[in-house]
Design a protein around this nucleic acid. Structure first.
Length: 770
DNA sequence: CTGATATGGATTTTT
DNA sequence: TCCATATCAG
């Protein structure tokens, strides 16, 4: 028997051993959340609950597997039979048994991101939308809007009104496009991410038999990361926990509202806040002692939350006194940031194993420089959150065969196979799909005409369908068939790609049903080889780092426009999400936390380095919370006395490199640079406020109240063109920051707003920079 | 219609 | 650098 009281603190113990009824565990970062779930699983098993009756919904399959593994270890025996994984994967496993009526017994396929884009593009072309109209949103943008509308359960025009004001004229077209995309999926037996959730909800509501059976089977439901569920996910949990008119059964939701970072995907913090209302009779348990981080790390994290616009009433505490101060490092440029981080990692490697070190960043491409520097230094790394290798063309090619085998109506897969043959473009695909679908062998044969290669592919697939084999044998046969093409398509690196495909076949051998393997591939990147992680440090986006922890964490590119992302500046709620993201990033660290805020970034468009300001999250940190280091000449880091300077330090070198030909540089000293700093008073304002104020200014007069000019994010920027008397950038109340392309008249300018495209705007609505 | 070439523009986060 | 769209020749 396990001694729960010994192994857990009081709150954890209460959670792990709680009896029947709904429970909400509010678990601060590093408060032993995973440990609590693991002991909960073990406790249930020890108290006679069959693993079959447990459902563990987590953010990734890996998280579920790890918890089950650890619970199994505690019990000194495996804990097999527990259903565990993401909402989406769970939905798929249910829906393949209880198919929605509209499928009428046809097979169905789960679409991945590329399929969704292709499908929307197809519908867009079909409806002849946006042809020659530059103001019409790009396919990617449309995909995002449609998904947002469904995830937030708002009509499309409402989404436009809130987030993409300028697209309102296209509201009707976009709605039609959305409808066309809906029919596309239904006709072809396809489901996207959102469908999986909504169809499961529909099943639980409309199919009494299925609902009753699922409720009976899953008597104990655990949901991790509850703060990142969206509305439909919350309803699914409620419906699984019992009929809505009855009392909810045994549900335990675990989460932390301060770590909600998926609102952009429709996650709703209200879910966790309203849990007790939604599940009457809830017991709320709070875990507030932090076991992960040292005090200095926690102080920085707590400070971030303290500056939040909406307070979280959260203050994590630790008994781990002492520990190194958090470092705030100012490299001269992004290039030297990479070098400094590499040096720092070499230093950290003396005390820590590689897998205990991570570098985190806001967006996948922020790590490119660092990746190159690490390669040069011979330091191995594993990157999370970038492009997945299952998204590589050759993998998708092979999987397309398997998908067609299961679902002959899968148009994206059909197109994928067809496109491997020269002479077949979108139009021909359309034609061939129509005849192949009609099922008339004679006319099909005729229509394929000279496209004999493709016809052979189809024959191959049909043949394969008549011979049931294991998933891995099927895929092996496909690879055999595809191999000659692999070699012609990728003459340079086909051996490597082939090896990758063989690994995938290996992974498939763990599956009995091919459709489950395909769904898993679309829903989640398969877990990496454990040997692959060995001896490697981790690079990760903050989103992908959720739930993980390391001894030492470096966060890079902590500058304006990167972290927080420049897309998050327009609306205060987006800005607050960035703050929580920063909180998540900092709380990943156990002992060492380094913050890097380079003084300049290389800018492709400008072909030079540009000064950038520190992230507001860095600027707001009290000087005593960090130990400041600054890079001087020759890449030498030196300590700066605490509080010696408030703002971002200038990089004289960066300025000098920026535009050597544009104009003679001003005297390269810091005093000269200080003139460019933001007014001290504004800099001290809480960033949440200063951003919403400066971004939402009234058209002509300066913002009410403050006498300061809302120079926004570019106080210290040096611009060649500006020096020649031309304005380069401006800020618009709705579109944000844009580049001025042309002065059309004294009052009109043409501006390019990233994400919004070219606009002609009256100057009075613009705030000019410089 | 397809496929090659030019051009222009920009770059979150993920199931 | 990389991607998407526009344009053009076969």
């Amino acid at each position: 028997m396990i001694d729960y009281a010994q192994a857990l603190n009081e709150a954890q113990y209460q959670a792990a051993t709680s009896g029947d009824g709904p429970v909400l565990v509010v678990a601060g970062a590093g408060s032993g959340k995973t440990r609590t779930i693991v002991y909960r699983l073990a406790w249930l098993a020890e108290n006679g609950i069959s693993p079959d009756a447990m459902l563990l919904l987590t953010f990734t399959r890996k998280a579920a597997q790890e918890m089950l593994h650890r619970a199994g270890m505690l019990l000194n025996q495996g804990l097999t039979g527990v259903q565990g994984g993401t909402f989406h994967a769970f939905s798929f496993s249910v829906l393949r048994r209880w198919k929605p009526a509209w499928l009428a017994d046809r097979p169905f396929t789960v679409m991945d991101a590329a399929d969704i884009t292709a499908a929307v593009k197809h519908c867009k072309d079909d409806l002849k939308l946006g042809r020659g109209d530059k103001s019409f949103p790009k396919t990617q943008t449309v995909v995002g809007l449609l998904s947002k509308s469904r995830n937030k359960e708002l009509p499309l025009d409402e989404v436009l009104r809130r987030e993409a004001f300028h697209l309102l004229p296209h509201a009707d077209s976009l709605t039609r496009l959305g409808d066309a995309y809906d029919s596309y999926r239904r006709e072809k037996g396809l489901m996207d991410y959102d469908d999986l959730l909504f169809e499961l909800e529909a099943l639980l509501r409309n199919n009494e038999m299925a609902a009753a059976s699922l409720r009976q089977r899953f008597s104990h439901i655990l949901v991790d990361e509850y703060q990142d569920t969206n509305l439909v996910q919350a309803r699914i949990v409620r419906l699984l926990a019992g009929p809505e008119d009855g009392p909810p059964g045994n549900v335990m939701a675990v989460g932390d509202e301060a770590q909600s970072i998926y609102a952009f995907r429709g996650a709703n913090v209200r879910n966790i806040l309203d849990f007790p209302k939604f599940f009457p009779g809830t017991t709320v348990i709070r875990l507030e002692e932090n076991y992960r981080s040292t005090k200095p790390v926690l102080d920085v994290a707590n400070s971030l939350l303290a500056h939040a616009a909406e307070s979280f009433h959260k203050n994590l505490f630790t008994r781990k006194e002492g520990g190194e101060l958090v470092r705030l490092v100012t490299p001269m440029s992004d290039a030297s940031q990479a070098k400094i981080v590499v040096r720092r990692i070499e230093e950290l490697l003396r005390d820590h194993m590689p897998h205990e070190i991570a570098v985190l960043f806001r967006a996948g491409f922020h790590s490119y420089n660092l990746e190159m520097a690490l390669n040069q230094a011979g330091i191995g790394f594993r990157k999370y959150g970038g492009l997945r290798y299952t998204e590589a063309a050759h993998v998708k090619d092979v999987m397309a065969y398997a998908r067609l085998l299961l679902n002959p109506l899968d148009l994206p897969a059909f197109a994928r196979v067809a496109a491997q043959h020269s002479g077949i473009g979108p139009k021909t695909v359309e034609k061939l799909y129509a005849v192949a679908r009609s099922g008339d062998a004679a006319s099909t044969e005729k229509a394929f005409g000279r496209h004999t290669g493709f016809l052979e592919d189809m024959r191959f697939i049909n043949d394969l369908r008549t011979r049931p084999m294991s998933p891995s044998s099927t895929l092996a046969a496909v690879l055999e068939h595809y191999r000659p093409r692999l070699e012609t398509l990728y003459p340079e690196d086909w051996p490597r790609r082939q090896q990758g495909l063989e690994e995938i076949i290996q992974m498939a051998s763990g599956y009995i049903h091919l459709d489950l393997f395909l769904a898993d591939l679309a829903l989640e990147s398969p877990e990496e080889d454990e040997n692959d992680t060995e001896g490697k440090i981790t690079l990760s986006t903050v989103h992908s780092a959720k739930g993980l922890e390391w001894n030492a964490v470096c966060i890079i590119d902590l500058v304006e426009d990167r972290f927080p992302s420049r897309h998050a500046l327009a609306r205060p709620e987006d800005f607050e999400e960035e703050r929580r993201l920063m909180y998540v990033a900092c709380t990943r660290a156990r002992q060492n936390l380094d913050l890097y805020a380079p003084a300049s970034l290389y800018n492709r468009a400008e072909r030079g380095s540009q000064h950038v300001n520190q992230s507001p999250f860095v600027r707001e940190l009290a000087p005593n919370l960090v130990e400041e280091w600054i890079e001087g000449f020759g890449g030498i880091l030196s300590r700066r006395a605490a509080g010696s300077s408030g703002g971002a330090q200038p990089s004289y070198q960066a300025r000098f490199q920026a535009r050597p030909l544009a104009r003679p540089q001003a005297t390269p000293d810091y005093a000269a640079f200080d003139d460019c700093q933001l007014p001290a008073e504004q800099e001290k304002t809480s960033p949440g406020q200063s951003f919403s104020q400066s971004r939402n200014f009234a058209p002509s007069p300066a913002p009410a109240g403050s006498g300061a000019t809302p120079t926004g994010s570019t106080g210290g920027e040096i611009k060649g063109d500006a020096a020649q008397g031309q304005l380069c950038y401006c800020t618009h109340r709705i579109f944000g920051r844009g580049k001025i392309i042309k002065h059309l008249s004294p009052e009109k300018v043409q501006v390019n707003f990233p994400g919004f495209g070219l606009k002609v705007i009256l100057s009075e609505y613009l705030l000019m920079e410089n």
